[in-house]
């Protein structure tokens, strides 16, 4: 027989659960959430998350590579088999070429930024919610411990920052998530602002807040990290201005940027562990000299 709880018990349990959830939210907002909560969740769910993601991606590739061609095969089986074989070869080589290009770009980035200690990571899964912009990565073998708050970059530009680390896995908060804020500077005019993720479900974008209306900002301007937030190193490309709107009144312009890194198709990224003590081109940083200004990425 099914047991029914008394109204008092129902209210008590409800209050306890709501209180727990609110407590977690408040602690997280204040940055006081014990790390084991997020780490534990990540550890428990990682195998399922990775497995389902891999299976789904396999199905997607199977569909695009094979099933889409099924109709053609009916027309001419022999010819189609040949075409399939050739296409497979082309697809394989194209895939390899793409992978090659990606990895080369990644290596180039490492070469270009000798001022930064980097650790490679592979993107294995995304958030299941359209309201939050988070990806999960598996850290590559390498020296250096990865910690919360460390910046994550890709050849195109800044990706985000580490949110949680659990073993060789980490969760990355993308720069387009509304919880992300990056202190930025426009490369051309030197105008300052803060890039905050829009969190839009249908695109990856961030808006620039506190951009003074008197400052010179036009669509296409490159947006770089200023380094003043103490989190992102100076001179990393964040993206390009896609929209600038200067209202009639008010102290600030409204601007929006499109990230330089293709956040929708991330595969490999670098975690920035810290400075190497070298300049971007690999020269020894002199102690008495003013801090080196890192060259922006291409």
């Amino acid at each position: 027989m099914r047991r029914t709880s008394s109204p008092r018990q129902a209210i008590l349990v409800g209050l306890l659960l709501v209180g727990t959830a609110v407590g977690l939210l408040v602690l997280d907002r204040r940055g006081r959430l014990p790390p084991f909560v997020r780490e534990g969740l990540m550890r428990v769910l990682a195998p399922v998350h990775d497995g389902v993601t891999a299976a789904a991606r396999g199905v997607r590739h199977l569909w695009s590579d094979y099933l889409a061609l099924a109709g053609v095969r009916e027309e001419n089986a022999q010819l189609h088999a040949e075409v399939l074989q050739l296409r497979q070869q082309v697809a394989d080589s194209a895939g390899l070429e793409q992978e090659n290009a990606r990895l080369r770009a990644l290596l180039d980035l490492g070469d270009r930024r000798k001022d930064l200690r980097l650790r490679a990571a592979r993107v294995v899964a995304r958030s299941t919610s359209p309201y939050f912009r988070v990806v999960k990565v598996v850290l590559g073998v390498g020296e250096g411990e990865v910690d919360e708050g460390m910046p994550v970059i890709a050849p195109g530009g800044v990706v985000g920052q580490i949110r949680t680390v659990s073993g060789d896995r980490a969760e990355v908060l993308l720069v387009t998530d509304p919880r992300s804020a990056v202190d930025v500077v426009l490369e051309r005019s030197g105008a300052r602002g803060v890039a905050v993720g829009t969190g839009d479900a249908d695109r990856y974008a961030a808006r620039i807040e506190y951009l003074k209306r008197s400052e010179d900002a036009v669509v296409g301007d490159r947006v770089l990290t200023s380094g003043d937030d103490g989190r992102y190193p100076r001179g990393l490309v964040l993206g390009e201005l896609a929209k600038v709107d200067t209202p009639e009144t008010g102290p600030f312009s409204k601007a929006e940027l499109v990230p330089g890194a293709d956040l929708g198709a991330l595969e490999e990224v670098f975690v920035v562990l810290g400075p190497t003590g070298l300049t971007a081109d690999g020269k020894q940083l002199q102690r008495d000299a003013p801090a080196a200004i890192a060259e922006p990425q291409e």
Binding site: V37, L41, R179
Partner: peptide, 29 residues
């Protein structure tokens, strides 16, 4: 039942937080 359902909802909400990368407690609440 109230209690059984609420407990199951809380656990599932927390798991959803893990999958979504949302602040823990958001989907739980």
């Amino acid at each position: 039942d109230w209690t059984e359902g609420a407990l199951a909802a809380a656990v599932l909400g927390l798991l959803n937080d893990g999958f979504a990368g949302s602040p823990p407690g958001a989907y739980m609440l």
